[in-house]
Design a protein around this nucleic acid. Structure first.
Length: 209
DNA sequence: TGCCAGGCCCTCTTTAGGGCCTT
């Protein structure tokens, strides 16, 4: 199961953080993730974590995560150690994955742990698949594709659940619209790296070979 | 914590600039 190329087994994750850049001192304050197998969420992970300093009022209002909530949370190192066990070597999906990968790598560097999976970015794939969407923010794509949600945004587990549903929707559209029987994780990664103009030709080739 | 990133992608491009995404 580890290093699987099966797009049907992935960890979809989302971080809430103190800001935009770990190189500027920002830390994770919440991690949420779902383990998906064959289109079903079979496991979940959600924990707040204490970054060791107060978060800004902007972050408090943006996420709804307050300094009071973080005061009693376990430190980042402890939570990220548990999370590393959760993700194992599964492949990983996130919306704007470069952001979440930077924080995952930074947090794991501090505890000398690593992971064996690769990232795929739902935003880059959606930009190519849904070129008529008004924009490619997670919330906009959820509305655009009429994906069910509970109205919670900018919390780690809620966003990872929505990203997981978007991922499944993209797999489905890959099958229905582009006639690719069983899109692999690697194929999804390949799509995210093609230019928009090259995607239709690439998918046509994948469908007919 | 400190006072703001980084990578993708388009275009009136490549001797560059700016919008989109993530918190």
């Amino acid at each position: 199961m580890q290093h699987s190329d099966n797009a049907n087994t992935v960890i979809v994750l989302d971080f809430e953080t103190t800001g935009l850049s770990p190189t500027q001192g920002d830390r994770a304050i919440e991690i949420g993730a779902v383990l998906m197998e064959n289109g079903e969420v079979v496991d979940r992970f959600q924990k707040l974590m204490n970054p060791g300093f107060r978060v800004s009022s902007f972050i408090e209002s943006y996420t709804g995560i307050t300094n009071n909530m973080l005061r009693t949370a376990a430190p980042c190192d402890e939570v990220m150690d548990q999370f590393t066990d959760f993700i194992g070597d599964y492949n990983l999906v996130a919306h704007n994955a470069s952001f979440d990968k930077r924080f995952l790598d930074a947090e794991l560097d501090t505890i000398n742990r690593s992971y064996g999976g690769e990232f795929a970015c739902s935003m880059l794939i959606a930009r190519r698949l849904y070129q008529n969407a008004p924009n490619h923010k997670l919330g906009s794509l959820v509305a655009y594709k009429n994906i069910d949600h509970d109205g919670v945004f900018h919390r780690a587990l809620a966003d990872s659940e929505m990203t997981a549903k978007l991922w499944l929707q993209m797999l489905e559209d890959m099958q229905d619209q582009f006639h690719i029987p069983q899109p692999s994780f690697t194929l999804m990664q390949q799509v995210s790296k093609k230019t928009k103009a090259a995607v239709p030709t690439f998918l046509h080739k994948m469908a007919t070979t």
